[in-house]
Design a protein around this nucleic acid. Sequence first.
DNA 1: GTTATATTCAACCAAATGGTTTAGGGTTTG
DNA 2: CAAACCCTAAACCATTTGGTTGAATATAAC
Lengths: 135, 135
Amino acid sequence: MKDSTAEKPANIGAESRQDAHLDRVFHALSDPTRRAIVQRLSQSSGTVSTLAEPFDMSLNAVSKHLKVLEHAKLITRDIVGRTSVCSLNVDPLQNATEWITQYTQFWTDVLDSFESHLDTDASENHTSIEKDACS
Amino acid sequence: MKDSTAEKPANIGAESRQDAHLDRVFHALSDPTRRAIVQRLSQSSGTVSTLAEPFDMSLNAVSKHLKVLEHAKLITRDIVGRTSVCSLNVDPLQNATEWITQYTQFWTDVLDSFESHLDTDASENHTSIEKDACS
DNA sequence: GTTATATTCAACCAAATGGTTTAGGGTTTG
DNA sequence: CAAACCCTAAACCATTTGGTTGAATATAAC
């Protein structure tokens, strides 16, 4: 249901460009301050000091967080006068969800068909996967 | 479709349990080795040595990665004999996508209606958001 | 031109991360 | 029992991270 020719099995341990970008995106989202900034920017663009204002930390710290987000291409900057206006870019967020749903969707599909197949059983934990362990 | 009363605006900088869990999930996914493990586990459960085999690193390193995934509740372990069988748990993955799509979905909706509103214009960059900068 | 404002850069620091090696605890197997 | 096997624990190391402070740069305002 996906590509089957373009994806080389690849020696695990070699890291593609795409992978490196996902690294940065997920890492950027792994910090509560940065997630709050993304949240905030989803409503409107903002300058650095505007974005820094709600947080109990130095402006420089927020500036660094913004640089992390920028490096992950989650935000773009627009320098206007002496201010730097940051805007959200949702592309990497969609890449991230695509990566995740590749696996969640698979399992929800499988489990849906599984449950509809024996539609009277009460499965107490239908999210942990046991399948065939180490064939 | 979700809670709307339970979410307090919260002093930014205070971190809820939910947030701390998202921290761990996103952090867990920010490493290519761990993502490869998740990928691998989405097909079948596996023992630690089975999971470690494709990687060019010590077993202990993989063991640590698994502990990170376990701490993020992305995997569960089932100790059988002297082996530890790891299985994927998709719940946190769904939490992560829910958090992300909260913002991507908003914008794709907005931009969809925007584009359908002036349905002849060619917008060259409809993913970077500029809106009202620092009202 | 001087001063205030907005932001970045650089140096520094403690703590966490990702890896290693060595040792140890259970569990099978001979 | 002894030896091999699977895995975790602990100590160690280099690098990164997330924060600080202080100086530097550039624009705006006076």
